[in-house]
Nucleic acid binder design. Sequence first.
RNA 1: GGCGCUAUCGUCUAGGGGUUAGGACGUGAGAUUCUCAAUCUUAAAACACGGGUUCGAUUCCCGUUAGCGCUACCA
Length: 491
Amino acid sequence: MPEEIRSQNTTPRVRFAPSPTGYLHVGGARTALFNWLFARHTGGTFILRIEDTDFERSSEEMVEGILEGMRWLGLTWDEGPFFQSQRLDLYKATATKILASGQAYPCFCTREELEQRRKEAAEAGRPLMYDRRCRRIPKPEAEARLAKGEPAAIRFAVPEEGSTRFDDAVFGPVEFANAEIEDFVLLRSDGIPTYHLSVVADDIDMRLTHIIRGADHISNTPKQVLQYRALGADLPVFAHVPLILGPDKTRLSKRHGATSVMAYKQMGIVPEAFRNFLSLLGWTPGAIKDENGKDREIFSSEELVKLFTLDWISKSNAVFDNDKLAWFNAEYIRALPVEELSRSLQPFFDEAGLNVSPEKLLAVTPLIRERIKFLRDAVAAADFFFVEELAAYDAADLIPQKGDAALARKILEHARELLATVAFDHVSLEQALREAAVSLGIKTGPMFQPIRVAVCGRKNAPPLFETMAVLGRETCLARIRKAEASLESLG
RNA sequence: GGCGCUAUCGUCUAGGGGUUAGGACGUGAGAUUCUCAAUCUUAAAACACGGGUUCGAUUCCCGUUAGCGCUACCA
């Protein structure tokens, strides 16, 4: 408690500490987002720290990928990135300090011995934990062996009695019997720290006040609390956030499809939408009503920052729902100014190999914005605007429901003649074609279908007149002529 | 197995001792309409189970069950 009060009286310092053994995934992104929101809300400092002490599995590409993901999401950090691989001296010094205090000891057991004992324990009885045998080695003997250069890890000497507890800002009081806590390794025999040591050393050194991280770390926390005490350091506030699960309620992983943040960028998720969606996974601003008295869900990042507090973080895990994300994204797409949306769309067309001028895309954008959930959908929705030659389509689609080829021919011929002279703007086109429908005695539905298919090459397309206006007279006439020809072949 | 955490519609969630348990996504139906969307209206859909406490529990307590997490000289 006194620790918490101290923490709350200084400006908060929080961190996101990914390990570059993989890309930035959805769960990590949400943890980063919560830290970022908390820092921005409180006027605190957001630190980025790369936990790359596992040299085997860490890579520079992954570091770059993580930074890229953070930038894309707009999660700007105030300090760092710091790399644990460059701070090994600190960890060694910290381990030495704990050792000197008598709360750690050298362990000469080899990896093989430990594995063997664990195996035996599993087969026979229960205690899978380290049996603490090196803790019983008399100090002079241990020092002699060390002096001889015998390799040793440094283990923390966990009290045999009592319990270790902490107050989690999300989960409340959590308590572990010390007897359940293993004498964990602080420093490996090669001098590289384990996670348990490096987090604590860094969190203390970086003067972190709040540790906001995934709930999978709850079980690790007592080990860290023990170290804080051994080092005489104040405890930060721990806030564990529930995990994000896949649709089958197991931890979100690759086999659930896209889990990398950059994959969502490539799908055409708008970063603001992603932030909004992610923020509401395991957190709620409470019941904030919209003008209709319904609970709001769309929040700008500024609002999120204003609203965010640790108190509203949920305790139960949340399933990642792609449909809901798609809905958020569609909402953001429709809310974006056309110019901005158009600019965001451009790279997707470029990537698809279509020759798309910004001017034309700007004209097309309002016609498709309500028809796409992901930015990438725009390519499939609007490709016919940009190709010289329409992709092959079924000539039968030209024939309206309850009509025949002759009717389709009649409509197209009539339209072709009309379009040769009419002014090619939305209003004129609509007026002329509606009048044509009346004079031919055909309802608008069947009347417009052959034209739409002829011009767009598909049955489902943006509104006809706007579309034709963008396409222009020459293209429309050519495509109608082509449609008439394909109708001939149909007989 | 041990330890820890969690439990409201299919999903995200609001609520909290007395409510017609609210909203959103998705789903169904309808309206609108040149198709598709978008939009609007509407419907179905939940307090895991069992004991307590209480005049009264979805809400508080205990247990059961289920799920998840941790259980490395990984992080």
